[in-house]
Design a protein around this nucleic acid. Sequence first.
DNA 1: GTCTATACAGCGATAGAC
DNA 2: GTCTATCGCTGTATAGAC
Lengths: 194, 194
Amino acid sequence: MTPRRRADTAERILDSAERLVQERGYNGFSYADVAAELGVTKASLHYHFPGKAELGEALLVRYTERFECALEAIDASTGDPAAKLAAYADLYGDVVRGRRMCLCGMLAAEVGTLPEPIRRAIVVFFDASEAWLERVLDEGRVDATLEFSGTARETARMLVGALEGAMLVARPYDDVERFDESANRLLAGLRAAS
Amino acid sequence: MTPRRRADTAERILDSAERLVQERGYNGFSYADVAAELGVTKASLHYHFPGKAELGEALLVRYTERFECALEAIDASTGDPAAKLAAYADLYGDVVRGRRMCLCGMLAAEVGTLPEPIRRAIVVFFDASEAWLERVLDEGRVDATLEFSGTARETARMLVGALEGAMLVARPYDDVERFDESANRLLAGLRAAS
DNA sequence: GTCTATACAGCGATAGAC
DNA sequence: GTCTATCGCTGTATAGAC
């Protein structure tokens, strides 16, 4: 049995790699970057994650798990559907305020260079996000606090893309305001007129 | 005087590099890739573009020029503002149908690893796009064919981000429909109720 | 304007000592 | 579990012949 004092080395590797991928992309970071940041050697990283592909997969699994936990926390709150949407958008806002891109949005851009298991894991993330949004949108339509044309699924897909894109475009401006503004526009367009 | 038979080598380099960046990203392509595709050596590329940074800048200049020409062509058409927005979205659709990402969207993701002049050129592209959209949105509000809350500028920014994001998320699914669906949702939300 | 040849740094990855 | 040492490859870039 390994005596585990927190934080686990594997976990620290994931923390470092996650930030690097979100800032620089999968093809823009290396084992050497992570090793330098953690003060260990590259060889040590290979003990925890055999190769870059496996590290990438582990990154996605953890990221998706945490995101789903955040969605559950929103569900457990007392807000109406509009408030839940605002809380959802705020999850993205947190990422932007950390000067990062969504991990999956970043990898979606680079998907042409990524191993197939990673592509599939990106799809799992977006599917989960859309399914949650679809449910909240349906709730809002039922209780008439939200209004939108088209199906809840279509609108959910539009929203995921729109928020990812708002993060993306804000990057070259290094301007958090630009993201917030777009997120507000998006949510305003869904609130019932009443 | 150099006798220029079409297509110019520099132009062919740009064509190849542009496609590679749009598919794989700036950090996901190399001079070797372009050289192989064109059947020349890497050294030959350095004659036309001293370094990768200069090649990247040239890519952005040409891309932005062409995009602005496409916007002028839409302006010259006879459509109403809603039709112009649809034509604008279709420019993005063309890129998606070519299984590419917008050059500037791709570079926006990787901006953390790019030279400063490239970052500035990305901003120029988005600024131009937003300015055009703002004008069309204002026209639509004046003639009451478009309806939206907030300012035309805010809505323009939201739209640019939303369309970029719709392209981005469609990539891991390799699904053009997903983009079209989101673009339609977005435009539907702007059309006047009348 | 394109070539051969090469420099040199960085990459992901492995073997084997400790 | 981390280290040193190293491998084979690819990356960007340059010098100089043609």
